[in-house]
Each structure stands twice: as structure tokens, then as C-alpha cells.
Design a binder for these strands. Structure first.
Length: 856
DNA sequence: GCAAGGTC
């Protein structure tokens, strides 16, 4: 029997497709990629009975990078990046997708590509084919690669796509390839150049990466443009006329001047005088009109991001994070979509029915079901995924605080789209005072419609106008001219930035949160109250600098213009190589011009920032000139020697202090003591060796705890005890400064393993002897005479901390608390699990060969 | 260490 391999863009889609095509009769098995299972069934295909395997990738399989040697920032001139060779590497090696596809693709007879029907999807088609084609069975001239084109995950659409399989579109894929290549070359060249240039000069930029990108930079541009508008704003005086009239029924009522305001005081005064000649205001006209406030359209990603930021005070990155969780737990539909139109066959009754008995909105939903809900507004169907809707009923206790708020909003929004519009009565009363007209307006709700389920949007009837009759004359209680002045606009809200990005085609629904997050993380902007994005001095200087040198670099229309060019490739109207070469050349020229003109930008930096030589506080002595070097604590942390004009990087997010004026025996630099917060790892470091490792087997950015100096008392060889019990590469090294709470710390900077040793020991050192059982180095412990655990009041003991009966009972494995977030969030879970192990440490794996090699 | 785009 022949085999058909079908590949979707994500696991959830593979599942839906398999279920639909097999009419629910498919089996399921796990693959070697933990995240992508395989669904199997039998069916007819190409004139015979076939075994179908439906699986997926997780987005792009490959990503573009430079060949290894071009990733050295010191040795490569950034301009070379416009011509440096690139390669495709596995996008996420942890997922093991390449091996997985090779395994599942081996010996299949057909491939059907079910990737999303957009350009990125087309590109992923060819990534999949690049892996599967070489291992699948030879076709013998028979067509064996097919592309399914579908616009919704519905029975009808999927079956129809399966009946009309076509071919993948190579031109669309090439268009994506060229965008990837252009973005990579351009982004990396500018980022490396300006990072190195400015970081080599200034000490208080407070960002370890001065990045440039075709999406992040225009995004920053929006925020700085608004800042400039605020700065250059000139307030203007204007005058309004405040009038109050007496009414018989409602007391005093304020009237608004029909002219609203005047910028000329003399003329305003003249009108005031004219008005003051009258005692009454005559009702001229009472206009009432029924108005509709339209219910919302079906929810897409960008709108969700806007509302979450503006109304729920949850940032875009966080919103997508929560939405993804709600999606994978089955509470909401797929959260990344541009579509605002429900599929034609969407089962609203079923979707509503889930909520019939809900404690909070059950009654509202029953109303919709019983009285017939109203047809949703027409939206746009981009053909990607249906709008975001709730998939099942849930209550507050199913989520954390923000999870619930987001679910609550998505659900209410869904009900709102099936509710009626809000109807209210608008009343406008006009008054004549002499020749001048004044107005009094108000609204009264008639039918709340959807605002009943979205109370935040309801019409406030409390400010409605009292009843007036035409011809009625109201005595004037007050007339005055009020001087006011125009105010500057406020900083852009995150929500407004999202709107601007969407309008200019900067980023996509899925990437907009990342771009905003980027400019925050790089300290170009910060989020102030009301989630307004306020640019930092660095962000301002960057944008002003680009504008000074080449405004195109920050122009919001640039992204769309570039994409328009590249779309010629997708449409088959231009040759891939030519268009890409042309675009790269333009940006190479722009880059070279930028480099030549960088002094223009630098002038702006000079005003806002201090040179390295004027930054920082003296900390430790330079090994070359013996003078104090200054510690620059702003990111990236460094030591700078003014005399030698040398800069030495220090580990990020780490407290450093002088280590007793001890010196490195190799270079005479004074050692520093590093710690990553309270109750964390501590180790010593030589600033010179940290940047220029003295030994081949010592990695860059290592402290003394990874130094392979054979004799120095601070080195790994002197203080190392055993291989780390948690990570693959680390060595547990004694922290000689930890007395009285002696501890061993893993020397791998990414590993938080700590072993707490005997408290209250006078002295602890690493012996030269090894444990015959586990190969760890033994330790020599000198206990305090009052608290010694040894018999007969003895205080001195030598033994293996894992195998010695006395010592092994006195140690405890821990995890360091760091100031930085632990990577992957896995740490805590493991820590808890280990904690239940009665504090008895695991035996070290016998990885000592690595360490032992150094001791030979 | 760098971009933007998928997705987990």
C-alpha cells in the first residue's frame, strides 16, 4: 500500500485536517518531535488504497544566518555582511523537526502540503520539500507533490481542497527568501556597526545592543515623532464663552457656544458685549434624532492587542502569551488572525450554547438564543483563520487574574458581535442670545443592545438635556469669557502605535508585539502610565540621527515600499536574483553613506551622553598601568581604563566588588568578586582573562572558577570538586569566600546549581585526593570545636562530600536565586521536584573525565 | 550579541 504524508503548519491544524478527512476515524501516535504527533488513517488516493500520515511542523523549519566565521563581531567589517555567504539552519533545534520529517518522510510515495495559505506558508512548503523529497520514494515520473489550498478549517473547505490539489508556488516562496535575506543583511550590518561605534565611545547608553531593524526602527520613529511634536508645541491662547441659563425644571444649565472658541481676544470680547445686551436665551430649535452605535466586528489579533493594552493594561507581548495559553488549553480559537468575518457555516448556536448556564452571562446568552441573535457585521476575510472566539465556557477559577480578564473580554466581545446595535436618542437644542447661537446637547439610551454585555461602552444618559419648547425663553444666569490655551498632544499609547504599524504594514499580527517589546527592551522607549510609549534619550538621539543622515532609514513607508518591490517576485513579474541584488545594493550604499556620515549622529550623542572616560566609579587596578579602572554599571557593564583607553566587559546583571586586592598571577589585574543577587552563586573573576582567555580550553567570558591555571589558588583546578549534578558541562567549584555558610557553585553561568556545605566550619579546602567511589575530590574540613559532628570532640576531617558517612549528611543541594530570570522557566519546576527528595543530593554523574583531564 | 517571520 502506498503512503501519503500530509504536513500542516502547526500541530492543531494537523489534528483538525486528519479528523475531517478521516471522518473522525484516525489513530494517533507520538513522533520523535515532542510537539508534533502523527494522525493516521486509510483512504483512496491517486487510484489506489493509501495509508495517510497527517502531521505538522511548528512554523518555519529553517532560519537564515551567516556562515559561522561572519558571526565574529571583532573580525568582520559589517559592510561585508551585504555579501557574506548565508546558510539555512534549523530554526529551533530543540524541536528536532528536520530529523522528524526525514523519519516520517522516508519511503512515502506522496507529499501533500497543508501549510497556511500565505507567502510564509508557501515558503515553509519548500522547507518541508527540501527535507522530504530526498528521502521519499522515487515517483517514476508520476506527480507526487501536491499543495492543498484552503481558506478555512471547515469540513467543506478541507474536503474541497483535498479534491482539488494543486502545486506550491515557488515565486511566493522566493519572495519570502529574499525578504529574509535582505532583513538579515541590513539589520545585522547596521546593528553591529552602531553598537560597536557608540558603545566604544559612551558609558551611559544603558543598552547593551544598539539595534536597527526595518520594523523596529520605524516603530520607534512613531514614538519619537510624537515626542518631537510635544517638544515643539507652542501653546496658543483662545477664548470660550461660558453661558448658564435658568430652567424651570432642571435648575441651571450650561450652554456651549456654537463658535466653540476664538483665537482673537478683541473679537471674543466684542461677542461677549453683544451677548451681554440680552437677558434671555430663546430656544430656537429642538432636534432629536435616533442614533446607532454599531456593535463591534468579529475580533482579530490586532484589535485584541489594542483593547488589551488600552482597556486591560496588558501589553502586547503579554497578551499574546496569555492568548496562546488560552488557545492551547482549548478556551479560545486560534489567536493569530487578521480576519474579522465569521466563516459562512460558523455554528453560532453551538458556540453560544456552551454559555447558557454561565453564572455571569448565562442569562444574556439565553436571551440571544431565545430571541434570535442578530447577524454579525460584515468584516474582511483574509483567509487565514477565523476570528478569535471562545471555544468553551469557563469561570474565574479556571485562570489567573489576567487570563480571566482576557477570556472575559474575548467572550463578551463574541456575544457583542451577535447582539443588536446600541440605540440612543440624540437631542440638540439651539438657543439664540441676540445674534449668537448656543447649544445644549445630550444623549438618552433607548436600547442598550450590545452595551449590555460590554457596559464600558454604554451611553451615559445622566447628562441628558432637560425638555425645552421652541420659543421658550430662559433667563441668563451667567455670561463670561474664559481664557484658555491649546495643549500639546500626549505621548502615543501602545494601542495607537499598533494602529500606526498596521496602517503602514510594519510587522504582522504575530510580530507586532515583538517589535514593540524590542524597542522597550533596548531601552529606546519605556511604558509610562496609561501604557504610553515615551522615548528615552537614546531612542530620541537614534531617530534624530537617522533623520539627519538618511531619513529613509526611519521612514514608516519604507517597509511597505520594500515589500512592494519584493512582491514583484511573488507575482512572477520580476526575477528573484535581480530584485534582491538591486535591493541589497541600495541598502549597502545607504549603509556606507551612514558609516561615512556617522559623525553627524555622534554630535547628537555627545549632547546626551558622557564619554567612557567620564563615566563610572573607580573599582580595581589595571594590570598594565597599575591605575584604577572605572566601573561602568549601566548596560553593558564594563571596566574602562582611562590611561590605557581599554575597555573590559563584565558579566551582565551581576554585582561586582573588589576581591581583597588579590591579583591574577598571569596579568596582574586585580580580581573582582561577582554575585548574581542574594543567596546566589559567588565567584572571582579577572577582568583581563574574562575578555582574553589565557588558555585554549578556557572559554571567553569565564571567571576564575573556569580557569585552567594549574597552580593559581583561585582556578577551577584548585577549587573544583566534582562534575555538576544538574548541567552537562559545569563543574562544582568551592566558593572560598562563602564562610561561614560554605558552598559549592556550578561554574556554568547558565546553571544555578549550588551545594550548601557544612555550616560553622572554620576552614574548608579541596584536597588533592579523590574519592575511590565517585571520583570527586575529597574535602578537608576544620569544624568548630563546639559544634563539631565528629566523635570525641575532633574537629578535622577529610572525605568525599557525597560518599563519606559524616560529610554526606551535612550537605544540601540548592538552586541559586539570581537577579536574572532563570532560562526557560524550567528551573523552578525542577527545583521543587528535587526538594521533595529529603535534601539528599544526587550522586554526581561520572563526568569527571572532563575535569580529570586537566589534572593530569 | 544582530533582523523578521513562522510557532510552542
Amino acid at each position: 500500500m502506498r503512503t501519503v504524508l500530509m504536513v500542516a503548519e502547526k500541530p492543531s491544524l494537523a489534528q483538525s485536517i486528519a479528523k475531517i478527512l478521516s471522518h473522525g476515524k484516525c489513530s494517533y501516535r507520538k513522533g520523535i518531535s515532542g510537539s508534533c504527533p502523527i494522525h493516521e488513517y486509510e483512504d483512496n488516493f491517486d487510484g489506489g488504497r493509501c495509508k495517510f500520515k497527517v502531521t505538522s511542523v511548528c512554523g518555519h523549519v529553517m532560519s537564515l544566518d551567516f556562515e559561522g566565521r561572519f558571526n565574529n563581531w571583532e573580525k568582520v567589517d559589517p559592510v561585508e555582511l551585504f555579501s557574506a555567504p548565508t546558510l539555512k539552519k534549523e530554526a529551533n533545534p530543540k524541536l528536532n523537526i528536520v530529523k522528524f520529517l526525514e523519519k516520517e518522510g522516508r519511503d512515502v510515495d506522496y507529499v501533500v502540503l497543508w501549510l497556511d495559505c500565505d507567502k510564509e506558508g508557501e515558503n515553509i512548503c519548500y522547507e518541508v520539500l527540501g527535507i522530504v523529497t530526498p528521502v521519499m520514494n522515487k515517483s517514476g515520473g508520476r506527480k507526487n507533490v501536491f499543495r492543498a489550498k484552503f481558506s478555512a478549517i471547515t469540513d467543506k473547505d478541507i474536503h474541497s481542497a483535498m479534491r482539488q490539489l494543486g502545486d506550491p508556488n515557488y515565486n511566493e516562496s522566493l519572495c519570502v527568501d529574499s525578504r529574509q535575506e535582505l532583513d538579515l543583511r541590513l539589520g545585522c550590518a547596521f546593528t553591529r556597526f552602531q553598537t560597536r561605534y557608540f558603545q566604544g565611545k559612551y558609558g551611559n547608553l544603558d543598552s547593551s545592543l544598539i539595534s536597527y531593524g526595518p520594523c523596529q526602527t520605524p516603530t520607534l520613529g512613531f514614538c519619537v515623532d510624537r515626542h518631537d511634536k510635544i517638544q515643539s508645541f507652542k501653546p496658543e491662547k483662545y477664548w470660550v464663552m461660558n453661558v448658564e441659563v435658568k430652567t424651570s425644571s432642571s435648575g441651571l444649565v450650561k450652554l456651549d457656544w456654537a463658535r466653540v472658541r476664538l483665537f482673537d481676544q478683541d473679537i471674543a470680547q466684542m461677542f461677549l458685549n453683544l451677548v451681554k445686551e440680552n437677558n434671555v436665551a430663546a430656544v430656537q430649535n429642538v432636534k432629536t434624532k435616533e442614533k446607532h452605535k454599531a456593535k463591534p466586528q468579529a475580533l482579530n489579533t490586532v484589535e485584541l492587542l489594542r483593547v488589551a493594552s488600552a482597556s486591560l493594561n496588558i501589553g502586547p507581548q503579554q497578551t499574546m502569551h496569555i492568548a496562546e495559553r488560552l488557545y492551547t488549553q482549548g478556551y479560545i480559537s486560534y489567536p493569530r488572525t487578521e480576519t474579522t468575518h465569521y466563516p459562512e457555516n460558523f455554528d453560532f448556536n453551538a458556540a453560544l450554547s456552551h454559555h447558557k448556564t454561565h453564572r455571569i452571562w448565562g442569562q444574556y446568552v439565553r436571551g440571544l438564543l431565545e430571541n434570535g441573535f442578530s447577524k454579525p457585521r460584515k468584516g474582511t476575510d483574509v483567509g487565514d483563520h477565523p476570528p478569535i472566539t471562545p471555544m468553551r465556557s469557563a469561570t474565574e477559577s479556571d485562570f489567573d487574574y489576567d487570563g480571566w480578564r482576557l477570556y472575559d473580554y474575548i467572550t463578551r466581545h463574541f456575544f457583542a458581535t451577535l447582539s443588536s446595535d446600541c440605540v440612543y436618542l440624540r437631542t440638540e437644542v439651539s438657543f439664540a442670545i441676540g445674534s449668537e447661537t448656543f447649544l445644549c446637547c445630550g444623549n438618552a439610551p433607548l436600547k442598550p443592545g450590545y452595551t449590555e454585555i460590554m457596559p464600558g461602552q454604554s451611553i451615559d444618559g445622566s447628562q441628558n438635556v432637560p425638555t425645552f419648547q421652541v420659543g421658550e425663553e430662559c433667563p441668563i444666569a451667567k455670561v463670561e469669557l474664559q481664557e484658555k490655551q491649546t495643549g500639546p498632544p500626549d505621548y502615543l499609547t501602545e494601542s495607537e502605535v499598533i494602529t500606526l504599524m498596521e496602517k503602514h504594514g510594519i510587522g504582522t499580527d504575530a510580530s507586532i508585539p515583538t517589535h514593540i517589546n524590542n524597542i522597550c527592551q533596548r531601552n529606546y522607549v519605556y511604558v509610562s502610565s496609561g501604557r504610553r510609549l515615551v522615548p528615552s534619550p537614546l531612542g530620541i538621539v537614534l531617530v534624530h540621527g537617522y533623520k539627519k543622515i538618511d531619513g529613509d532609514l526611519v521612514l514608516p513607508t519604507m517597509r511597505a515600499a520594500v515589500e512592494e518591490q519584493l512582491n514583484l517576485i511573488a507575482a512572477g513579474k520580476a526575477e528573484y536574483g535581480e530584485v534582491l541584488k538591486h535591493a541589497i545594493n541600495i541598502f549597502r550604499q545607504k549603509f556606507q553613506f551612514f558609516v561615512e556620515q556617522i559623525a553627524g549622529m555622534d554630535q547628537l550623542f555627545e549632547v546626551s551622553f558622557s564619554p567612557l572616560s567620564e563615566t563610572g566609579k573607580p573599582l580595581s587596578r589595571c594590570g598594565k598601568c597599575r591605575r584604577f579602572m572605572k566601573h561602568i554599571s549601566a548596560a553593558p557593564p564594563r571596566l574602562h581604563c582611562n590611561t590605557c583607553d581599554d575597555t573590559y566587559n563584565l558579566p551582565p546583571k551581576t554585582n561586582v566588588k573588589l576581591y581583597q586586592e588579590l591579583k591574577c598571577p598571569l596579568d596582574d589585574f586585580e580580581l573582582l568578586l561577582c554575585s548574581t543577587g542574594t543567596q546566589a552563586k559567588t565567584y572571582s573573576l579577572c577582568p583581563y582573562c574574562f575578555n582574553h582567555p589565557p588558555f585554549r580550553d578556557m572559554k571567553k567570558a569565564s571567571g576564575c572558577n573556569a580557569c585552567t591555571h594549574p597552580a593559581c589558588v583561585h582556578s577551577m583546578l584548585s577549587l573544583g570538586v566534582t562534575a555538576c549534578t544538574e548541567c552537562e558541562t559545569g563543574v562544582m567549584v568551592l566558593d572560598p569566600t562563602s564562610r561561614p555558610k560554605w558552598k559549592l557553585c556550578c561554574n556554568n553561568s547558565r546553571c544555578a546549581a549550588v551545594i550548601a556545605l557544612f555550616k560553622n566550619a572554620h576552614k574548608v579546602r579541596v584536597a588533592d585526593s579523590k574519592c575511590g567511589h565517585c571520583n570527586s575530590f575529597e574535602m578537608v574540613v576544620d569544624f568548630h570545636k563546639d559544634t563539631t559532628p565528629l566523635e570525641n570532640g575532633e574537629t578535622k576531617h577529610t572525605g568525599c562530600i557525597f560518599c563519606d558517612e559524616i560529610l554526606s549528611g551535612l550537605i544540601q543541594e540548592k538552586r541559586a536565586r539570581t537577579m536574572a530570570k532563570t532560562s526557560g522557566g524550567r528551573g523552578r519546576g525542577r527545583g521543587r521536584g528535587r526538594g521533595r527528595g529529603r535534601g539528599k543530593p544526587r550522586q554526581p554523574k561520572d563526568k569527571m573525565s572532563l575535569l580529570a583531564a586537566y589534572f593530569v
